[in-house]
Amino acid sequence: MILQTALPSRLPAEHLAALRAQIAQVQAARGPVLPFGLLQIDTRLASGGLDGAALHEIAGASASWSDDAAATLFAAGLAARFAAVQGMTVLWALSRFDLYAPGLEQVGLGPGKVLYAQGRKDSEVLALAEDALRDGSLACVIAEVKAADQTATRRLQLAASDGQTPMLLYRRHRSRERSPLAQPSSAMTRWSIAAAPSTTLPHAGIGRGQWTIELVRQRGGNPFSLLVEACDDQGCLALPAAVADRATAPVGASIRAA
């Protein structure tokens, strides 16, 4: 009797099938997923990679120039991998143009792949990004802003899922103390990137850079932090040698946060 009150009626098979179809539909609506190609990251992300039709936020871990540059390159590398197909274009919307295009080309985002749009202020940059997302003809949209409130991010998220285009919102620091990722946002994932000391080479010179990437928040998953090697010329991250040999951590996306 107790069992019967706990489970008043058994789920009929068709009800179950309907639920499964609903889940499949939701997953299909989420669009294609771009995996990082690194087990340590992909297994900890709720969707097994970056959602190709959603908003992702990226910021430097601190207001310093090098963290800012590392975060920029992280976003550029992601965009380059989204635009890996020949002929696809990335829109980079910003209000102050201080990017150096030869540096972007070295993470796979060549000059033929990027279209820059310079708005006068943040609201215009966000409007440009939203238009571009809804058009749906781009491989990826990057917007550089200092301020974007919950409404703005919600709009971007909806536009991204409407246009089936990934949106990378690069948030610059407004002040030295407050992190831009502290504000609430509707982003699917929020990344904080910091430059880390690279491994010293046995000879003179500088090797591949290293970053500490921290997933501050993700929908349906746990935050984590990882030391990775910087983007190569295709925009792919790698694990430092010492970590690459280690076995994958057993904790995966199966442990879900509320």
Binding site: P111, V114, Y116, A117, R120, D131, L138
Partner: peptide, 20 residues
């Protein structure tokens, strides 16, 4: 992307869109 370029240029001005 030409239609999108026209649309964005209509919003932000013709010189706002460029390649490098």
């Amino acid at each position: 992307v030409a239609p999108l370029v026209d649309q964005l240029a209509g919003r932000a001005g013709e010189e706002a869109l460029f390649r490098v």
